[in-house]
Design a protein around this nucleic acid. Sequence first.
DNA 1: CCCCCGATCTTGTCAATGGAAAGATTGCGG
DNA 2: CCGCAATCTTTCCATTGACAAGATCGGGGG
Lengths: 191, 191
Amino acid sequence: MSSAPATPRAYHHGALRPALIAAAVATLDEVGPAATSMRAVARRAGVTHAAATYHFGDKAGLLTAVAADGYRMLAEELERAERERHSFLEVGVAYVHFAVTHRAHFEVMFRPELYHRDDPGLLAAAAASARSLYGTSHVEGATLASGVAAWSLVHGIATLWLNGNLPEALGDDPEAITRVVAAYLRPDHRR
Amino acid sequence: MSSAPATPRAYHHGALRPALIAAAVATLDEVGPAATSMRAVARRAGVTHAAATYHFGDKAGLLTAVAADGYRMLAEELERAERERHSFLEVGVAYVHFAVTHRAHFEVMFRPELYHRDDPGLLAAAAASARSLYGTSHVEGATLASGVAAWSLVHGIATLWLNGNLPEALGDDPEAITRVVAAYLRPDHRR
DNA sequence: CCCCCGATCTTGTCAATGGAAAGATTGCGG
DNA sequence: CCGCAATCTTTCCATTGACAAGATCGGGGG
């Protein structure tokens, strides 16, 4: 009866690909992108590093999958914020919230030298995120610039926060900081 | 007479430390921080990898020197912009200009996991940069938040530009983009 | 004047890494 | 039921960062 343990550890894992991605995210969260190695990720997933190479080609391929997942999740969170809060500011807050709660994904996403920029799946996911950020209207000129201003502001807050570069006097809640700091954007571009 | 060639290549280099830093910056500019190795930097400087280890302790030590140089140069450029242009906006433009023209320094500076954050020389240089950014007045509350807003905005523009994430419709001049985008900051916090 | 000592740089070694090649194992379709 | 392709392992190689030990140089004290 007990011929099949809880984790069969069969020769064929069955779902190694997502398991490796999860292991990569966990490792990235613990030691950061620089110190994350294919072998450590594979060890965490219980396989050899060559198994990871088989599924993703190379290290950049693995991180490409992580980045694509990140863009998908970001698009979803931004859309939900837009849908539920109906506020441009709260979309920005959601952006910072994503960066802080999904640090591994976020850091990989904005370090293009780590992954394959031309991956089709990644490009599609990134485009979806951009749509959520700028809104559904692909406008030019002033509206585009205002969207970039809002994105740059929250992106700056997120990266500076993650690197520990924001003054301590602002407190330790990045979302609250976003609300305070974003107040210095001109309000006339909000919906 | 010709016993001393142009570059003596003596056993003692004479100024290996700054030469290694320059080689590191050149390598960083060419292949990025991830692919920069101690050995490649040492090769470029014409010495063995162990020579670099002797002068900087480890790889993080070398990058600490690069980051400290970067903070010193940034502080200088920001102060000059403030002195010559008398405009808060132009200080932000100078920030983006620094990031684009000193990409190697900038990328290392804001990747703290790459260097020794507690290095005294680095801390001093970073503090000088922060002073130039926020102005000489160390105020709290609203003024601090407005300074962080301006910093976050230009930092976001700089990092997004360096990663190629800004829409192409904005053009290819990051300083011009900064002037356009920064217009969406409330003007009441400028001097 | 000369030698010694410390600063500087090299050689050699080691474990870990990414990648590639080749082989082992498995399960599925014909 | 069998062959075959997908999946995973083993093995190997060049490179890297770090460390230890040795070689070389230069300047100051005797």
